[in-house]
């Protein structure tokens, strides 16, 4: 995201209004379609949270009833908790692996491209394909677990997605598997821009590779790191595909997320008003992260 550069043209002043309108005509189509698809329905979504709309009836205004119900809804809190766990998982494992991969890649001379491309491939594969892939690999009878069990190692031969204790972590693993390579590429790009002389100086001071990473690399890529952290916080609140396809939030809501609970309410239980209330909670989460983003940019961070 970059700021539009103001430029000065020396146009005749005569019909300023027509000129301005003529320029805006180029952006109006994009703004209109975005308005129809995103902005107007979002505003309606904010409104229907205060109604008993099923999606099919004439909505009645019911004030804050949906919010009251939400704050007493155990499943919602379970989902919210799961979203928080999900966020923590994604803020640790993929970032750690991403930084490790990028750092090592930045130090090697040959084969950088082939590694980079291989790591990125899972990211371009559709969620529905990745889901099929891991459903089989983590299946207790025909997957890695069965293969290990035959060799006497019994730790993965249980239904990972069908067990309460493991369902959420199993799904998060699959999503993270497809995501970490994206972080490697982003961090590698940031690391390539670091001034080589800083490393030279650190080496002359006798810094080990780990110390170089800690004192040269990390501070230099800080804006990129913060950017990915904010992105992960935003995406973790709205993540849907992998949970919906692998567990639909089950078993017994063990892997329920706000997004799957919302979807269920809107399209299976005909409770559109309540679903919109959950949508507002998700928007609040995203809004806080975006506010953080804007705040850091205001303070002059290039993110």
């Amino acid at each position: 995201m970059t700021q539009a550069m103001p430029r000065k043209n020396s146009e005749p002043r005569k019909n300023q209004f027509a000129v301005t309108l003529g320029r805006w005509a180029f952006v109006i189509p994009v703004l209109t379609i975005n308005m129809i698809v995103v902005i107007i329905p979002s505003v309606i979504g904010l409104g229907i949270a205060f109604t008993d709309w099923t999606g099919y009836n004439v909505p009645n205004f019911i004030g804050l009833d949906n919010f009251q119900r939400l704050f007493q809804d155990e499943i919602f809190f379970k989902a919210l908790r799961n979203n928080l766990i999900w966020t923590l998982i994604f803020l640790t494992a993929p970032i750690a692996v991403g930084l490790l991969g990028a750092y090592i890649l930045s130090t090697i001379k040959r084969g950088q491209m082939i590694f980079r491309v291989s790591y990125f491939i899972p990211y371009v594969i559709a969620s529905v394909v990745n889901v099929q892939l891991w459903r089989q690999l983590l299946h207790p009878r025909v997957g890695i677990g069965a293969w290990l069990a035959e060799r006497g190692i019994n730790f993965l031969d249980f239904p990972v997605f069908g067990t309460r204790e493991s369902a959420l972590y199993g799904v998060a693993f699959v999503d993270a598997w497809h995501f970490w390579g994206f972080l490697v590429v982003i961090y590698l790009a940031a690391m390539s821009a670091v001034d080589k002389e800083l490393y030279e100086v650190a080496r002359l001071d006798g810094a080990t590779p780990l110390q170089q990473f800690r004192h040269v690399t990390l501070p230099s890529i800080r804006p990129t790191l913060v950017f990915t952290i904010l992105m992960i916080i935003i995406w973790s609140s709205t993540t849907f595909d992998y949970v919906y396809m692998l567990t639909s939030g089950g078993p017994a809501n063990a892997s329920e997320l706000m997004s799957t609970y919302l979807y269920d309410n809107a399209f299976s239980r005909f409770d559109a008003g309540y679903a919109a209330t959950i949508g507002i909670m998700m928007s609040l989460w995203v809004g806080l992260a975006v506010a953080g983003f804007v705040y850091l940019r205001r303070r002059g961070w290039e993110i």
Binding site: G45, L46, A266
Partner: peptide, 11 residues
């Protein structure tokens, strides 16, 4: 940055 789930229902 609006979550798709918010505008998807009215949409």
């Amino acid at each position: 940055s609006v979550p798709a789930q918010l505008f998807m229902i009215p949409l």
